[in-house]
Design a protein around this nucleic acid. Structure first.
Lengths: 257, 257
DNA sequence: TAAAACTGTTCCGCTCTGCTGAACGTCGTT
DNA sequence: AACGACGTTCAGCAGAGCGGAACAGTTTTA
């Protein structure tokens, strides 16, 4: 996932460097000073000074010659999760849906033009994947993401494309602006989106938006699974109706919070 | 909870300030520039510059005149949670225990001389409390914390007391070094710890350590609930045995990870 | 056994940058 | 219309962050 975001002129370099180090530490799942100098391109002494600072504030722990992210970050994560109304509102509904269909169901929202998974309910037959709570996704390449894009103002969609582009993950990924806008139009008619291997080969998904009274998008619900299995489900159990029902339940929950 | 940690001489001030702002933003659950200047004691323009930096890196979002922590922090939180072997190892066992006893069960670990709750399983009769995943606790005032202290080297316990002190939360909190060490000795005999309103009035808890083969402590399991209810449970269902069994299950799980 | 090649850590000086206080623009209120 | 609150911008000085090199360990190599 892209690291920068925007240019935005006057940033405090020291803070940017500290955050770069945290991100590198995250990717590396723990690393030594030298490894971090390679990953960040900073001087060894600079990395060291930052690590000392981060450790003294409790965000990093030192374990012999290895530095790792500390559990301090957990409280931030839990905080933002619970601060997001969708988290509580989606908890029961997605658990219910995943139990009925047996597949993985997740609820995501958008921020800064990217999607973030904020709640996951495993199905009994869930495949293993790298999608978990906290995962960031591009909006154009996921079912839930497209469902959200379809209900954002068109100029906002343009901004997002300008900022993040339309990178391809598989041969099926939509990379053309016009094609995307066409699909968004049909989504608004049908109420749900499909994703057929546009992000991961062989993995399909169905997504529905979660809307407020005034039409603003709060997020999306997505059911994901292996391509063939989902196609069957879709016929047998009328997945579309169940998904819309779940989304609607979440919408109602959102009104009382 | 204390914010600093240690003196540690040469810290990068800009980074310290950025983290202070993040922490203030966390406490305030979103705030404007002016509120943050009051909370942090920094100049308004300084706060603004930091917020711009944090926003450009995606850690903070701006919503009109209010800044909030972004969902970006969620990926960090989930990362450290899953990087901690205790998380996966405790998931099933504590769910099982909380189902049987009906009370809230949580699993915590220690880092930097503080406890952190890394997994919670709600019981059917759980009371509402501010203890949740990510919550930091002082080790001397919680059942699980004392269970962990009891199996740390004595000099390490001294260090921790020197660093964090023995602050009192209720009249029952242990504030005397000798008393604490006496209690730690009896804990090692009995295998479990009790907490009778030492952190929250009227709330009791029972904790057991999670130990490795070589005797090192990985963490602790704790059952918490209203005082009178827990006393009954304790008699009826022999909570101590069930708790030790759960702790042991987690210890076994830890060996295969 | 010695030395070479790694680590993480410290030191010091230069330059650049982060900090501040004040001024600006823009809302909502009185 | 004047006021007060907010977030934002500006400019200049002092201090602090940065990097290169030297230090102190530990493991690997000859």
């Amino acid at each position: 996932m892209g690291t920068t975001g925007e240019g935005e002129g006057n940033r405090i370099e020291a803070v940017v460097k500290a955050l770069d180090i945290l991100e590198a530490l995250w990717q590396a799942e723990g690393a030594g000073v030298t490894e971090l100098t390679e990953r960040t391109g900073l001087a060894k002494s600079t990395v060291h000074a930052h690590l000392t600072t981060l450790r003294s504030k409790g965000y990093v722990v030192q374990d012999g010659d290895e530095y790792r992210l500390s559990l301090r970050l957990l409280s931030f994560g839990e905080h933002v999760k619970h601060a997001e109304p969708l988290y509580a509102a989606s908890d029961a509904p997605i658990a219910d849906l995943s139990e009925r269909v047996g597949e993985r169901v997740f609820c995501s929202t958008h921020q800064n033009g990217l999607g973030t998974v904020i709640n996951v309910s495993e199905g009994t037959r869930s495949f293993t994947s790298d999608i978990d709570v906290g995962t960031h996704t591009y909006l154009h390449s996921s079912a839930g993401g497209k469902a959200m894009l379809a209900h954002l103002p068109e100029e906002r969609v343009d901004e997002i494309i300008d900022q993040w582009g339309l990178p391809a993950f598989t041969d099926e990924t939509i990379t053309d602006r016009e094609v995307l806008f066409d699909e968004l139009a049909t989504i608004r008619d049908e109420g749900v989106t499909y994703n057929r291997g546009e992000y991961l080969p062989g993995i399909s998904a169905i997504g529905a938006p979660i809307l407020g009274n005034d039409g603003t998008v709060f997020g999306a619900v997505t059911v994901a699974g292996p391509h063939h299995r989902l196609e069957n489900e879709w016929e047998e159990h009328d997945l579309r109706t169940q998904l819309l029902s779940t989304a609607n339940t979440i919408e109602v929950n959102m009104m009382f919070s």
